[in-house]
Amino acid sequence: MDIVVFLKMVPDVVEELVIGEDGKSLDTQWLRMKLNDPDEHALEEAVILKEKYGGTVTVVAMEAPEVEEVLFTALAKGADRAVRLPGDWTGIQAPAIAKLFASFFSSANLQFSSETLILIGSQAIDDLEGEVAPYLAEILGAPYVGVVTGIRLDEEKKKTIVMKEFAGGLRGEFELPLPAVLGIQAAEKPPRYVPVAKVRSIMKSARIETVDVSPPEIVSGLSVERLFIPEATGKAEMLEGPPETITAKIVELLTERGLIRR
């Protein structure tokens, strides 16, 4: 089984996001990039599957700030190959990303075959379309399930049985043949931690491959008129002061509403 995980760097939303002068994009000068959260879970699930069923894990990411570190970390976690797709991919949208990822197979001595299982984070927060996996499934003509939180293989390793979340804790089980594209919401275990020392040592012994892919031409037709920061509606009344003042106020609020009983 060839497990391929496509990783994507997105702006870290813990940082303040600044809108650029054009009013239609983010000011990249202030962005700190991190691995898309669900992609981190996709990587974890891939390594878990490799440990259970064997096979190889290849991680692929578009060029972006901090991406080398993310790829080396993936190798330290158990990926076998790490590939960077060089280019300036600023502003690239999900349909074009999917096309780019699909073209990876024809240019990277890695066949898209009945052995291929593709894992991608179920959603990304940084573009209007927000989902790469279903587009990629369309282009490759492969079956797809999204919001996946668990994967197993049948005995012959020809089919995957996946668990998908609905709502309210209800989940569903689906079966689909390989090759398949799965949108991962969460790995069955939290993403593993690797010590920095191990990443550093991998940096010395392993290398990141580069594969050249040509930028796809896709015009979405959407015209972005403006980006803006939402105004908070019904903004909270802020309680300020030293901890004792704040907690006294909280206790008062709760007592008024009968939420603390003596």
Partner: peptide, 23 residues
Amino acid sequence: GTNVSTGIGPKLSYRLNLPFVNF
């Protein structure tokens, strides 16, 4: 834009060559 319907929009937009907007 729910877990139940996830993936339908992108697939439909791809097949109809129409723009898709999420969220």
